[in-house]
Design a protein around this nucleic acid. Structure first.
Length: 377
DNA sequence: ATCCCGGTTG
DNA sequence: CAACCGGGAT
């Protein structure tokens, strides 16, 4: 029993490095000390079952013994969080003003797209502002219900997991932290992988800000190895844990902008976390599936032209202009699942799509790869 | 626009 | 084996 623990000793790491380099591919220049938990990961399951060596103390998190790290009092009040979930959210929130550091270019793009929204932001004081300042695309309701029908029949991966499933039995604060971590790791097309990583962190008691803050980054790296960008994510997780610990008493930020200020948390995750962790819908969680599908359906366009939107952020703003707020939360899982099974990035199954009749892009993505950029017809 | 990293798809 | 996928940072 027992045995190999994760490569927490620097020697283990060192020995692992040349190994990875040996079988690694590009080694040009400098393989920035890329250690590959890959091999180590295979024995991961056993490792997890094993008992940690005391000397390593890496996982010695004192259980959640004192989980209640107390201090709740200080609880940061819902600062800038508008509680009006039903009313129209403050449009200004859409333009992440001072999100991270300096205002990002996104803001400009956003405002460019929604001149209307900008106006509302400054003048409307009532909640009864119509949700549709933009023109809803024709038949959007039929399309939506059609997609729902397709979704109900086939089980898409997204249905079996989601960060909302993370830590379902944990106390609120821990659950929220679990949701944040889970979304950070998430890669929807590989939720199994994501789930496994979250599960591993949980089993090792590393799903709390305190524990994560104390843990070895290398350990975290190894545990989440299967997910993409694990090195960066491990780094971000540690930073996030520390920030949560210092500024939020181990909880996670409760406002969109504070979430956006966390390293590795962008619009897509921030909106998702606001929804799942705080049940506060500030905007639509737009990932590449939502972005791609909305454009194929002709649901979003750039400001004036009929051009497709070029970024998820642009799509989010354009979609929010007309999509009724009740649909903001469900639209993501709906389209993600649809995008995984039917409206795939490549070779969309238009023949199996129940709304192809209403889709302006149906059957148009013939894969004429790089052959001749010629015309059609 | 590129890179991060490994998996998947063609 | 090459291209692509993914969310964010730069």
């Amino acid at each position: 029993m027992s045995l190999l623990l994760l490569p927490r000793s620097s020697e283990a790491l060192r020995s692992a490095i040349p190994f990875s380099v040996a079988l690694g591919r590009r080694i040009n220049g400098m393989p920035k000390t890329r250690l590959s938990p890959r091999l180590l990961h295979q024995s991961k399951t056993e490792v997890l079952a094993a008992d940690p060596k005391p000397e390593l103390r890496v996982f010695e998190r004192k259980k959640r013994a004192k989980e209640t790290i107390e201090v709740e009092e200080h609880e940061l009040k819902p600062e800038s969080t508008p509680k009006k979930i039903c009313g129209l959210p403050d449009i200004e929130d859409f333009a992440y003003k001072s999100a991270k550091g300096k205002s990002k270019p996104i803001t400009d793009a956003v405002q460019g797209v929604s001149g209307v929204a900008a106006r509302i932001d400054s003048t409307e004081s009532s909640d009864q502002v119509k949700c549709f300042m933009g023109e809803p695309p024709a038949n959007w309701e039929k399309v939506l219900s059609g997609i729902r029908t397709m979704r109900s029949s086939e089980g898409a991966p997204v249905d079996t997991m989601g960060c909302e499933k993370a830590g379902g039995t944990l106390p609120p604060k821990e659950r929220r932290f679990a949701v944040l971590v889970s979304s950070l790791l998430s890669s929807q097309t590989k939720d199994q992988v994501n789930h496994g990583a979250v599960q591993r962190l949980l089993e090792n008691g590393l799903l709390t800000a305190e524990a994560l803050d104390k843990a070895d980054e290398t350990t975290i790296r190894t545990l989440i190895y299967p997910v993409g960008f694990y090195t960066r994510k491990a780094t971000n997780m540690k930073k996030i844990a520390k920030i949560c610990l210092l500024k939020y008493n181990g909880d996670i930020p409760s406002s969109l902008e504070d979430l956006l200020a966390l390293p590795g948390i962008g619009p897509k995750m921030a909106h998702l976390v606001m929804h799942i962790a705080w049940d506060n819908i500030q905007g639509i969680c737009v990932d590449t599936h939502v972005h791609r599908i909305c454009n194929r359906l002709g649901w979003v366009r750039r400001a004036g032209s009929k051009q497709k939107t070029s970024s998820p952020e642009e799509t989010r703003v354009a979609l929010q202009l007309w999509l009724p707020k009740e649909e903001w939360a469900p639209i993501n899982p709906l389209l993600v699942g649809f995008g995984q099974t039917i409206c795939t990035p490549l070779r969309p199954r238009c023949d199996k799509c129940g709304v192809s009749e209403l889709c302006p892009s149906a059957f148009k993505e013939t894969k004429m790869k790089k052959t001749s950029p010629a015309k059609k017809s």
